[in-house]
Amino acid sequence: MSTQTTYPATEVAAPRLTRRQRARLSLGVQYALGIAVIGLLAFMTDWATFSAAFLRFDILERMLPRVILIGLVNTIIYAALAFIFAFVVGLLLAVMRLSSVAAYRWFAGAYVEFFRGVPALVVLFMVAYGIPNAFPGFQFPGDKYGMVMVGLGITAAAYMAETFRAGIQAVPKGQLEAARTLGMSHTRTMATIVIPQAFRVVIPPLTNEMILLVKDSSLVYVLGVTAAQYELTKFAQDFLNRSVNATPLIVAALCYLAITLPLSGLVRKLEARYAKAR
C-alpha cells in the first residue's frame, strides 16, 4: 500500500514551480522587459541630434541670470499672491458655507460651484478685461500683479473653500462641545480650537493647491505682460521663438521643479511635526 500519489507521465508536461519560484520568474520577466525597452530606445535615438534639440548649453548660458531673476521670481510672486488671496477668500467661504445664516451658505455654495466649473483661463480673462471695463477708472493695485492675484486667486479660492470645509468638518464634534462647555463663544471656538486643528488636515491638499497655482501662473502670459513681468513659461517661449530649440522649455521645467519639489518636502516636514502633537 503506497501513500504516494503518482501522476501519469502525460500530465507532467510543464515542470511544476513552487509559489516562490513563480514570483521570482515573474519579477525577472518584468525587469527583462523594462531593460529591453530602454535599450531599444537608447539604440534608436540619435544622441547628438537629441541633445542638440533639448540640451544646448549655449542657449542655457544666454538665458541664465534672467531666467532666475525675472522668470522664476515672477512665477513665485504670481503664485504666492494668488495663494494669499485664495487662502483668505477660501477660508471665509468655508466658514460661510458652514454658517447658520442660510444666505451665506447659498452664496458660498454658488461661488464654489461656479468657479470650480469654469476654466481658470476664462476667469483670468474676465478679471483682466471685464473688471476694468465694468468699473472705469479702477486700477488693480500693482497693475498686472494685482490682476493676477485676483484672476488666479478667485478660482483657487473655490477649491480651497472645499478643502477648508472638509478640514473643519473633520474636527470631531466633541472638540466643539468641550470648548463650548468651557464657556467659549462659537467664534472663539472656531478660532482657537477648530480651525487650528483643521489646518493640520488641510496642509497637504493646500500645498497641492500651491503647486497647481505655480503651474497655473503660466496662464499669465495671455494678459500681455511686459518683459519685466515675464514668468517662466512666457520667458521660455520668448527664447523658444528666437532659438527654435527646446532647451528653454527644459530650463523652464527644471525651474518649476525647483519650486515644487521643495514645497513637497516642506509638506512632509510639517506633517511629521504635527504628527507628534496627535
Binding site: A178, L182, G183, T192
Partner: peptide, 28 residues
Amino acid sequence: IGMVFQSFNLFPHLTVLENLTVAQIKVL
C-alpha cells in the same frame, strides 16, 4: 458648569498645560 466627557475631548493640538489655560485666558 464643568463637564467631563466619555471621550475626554482634550484639545490635541495643545499641550496639557495649554489645554488647562486656554479657556482661563480667553474666557475668564
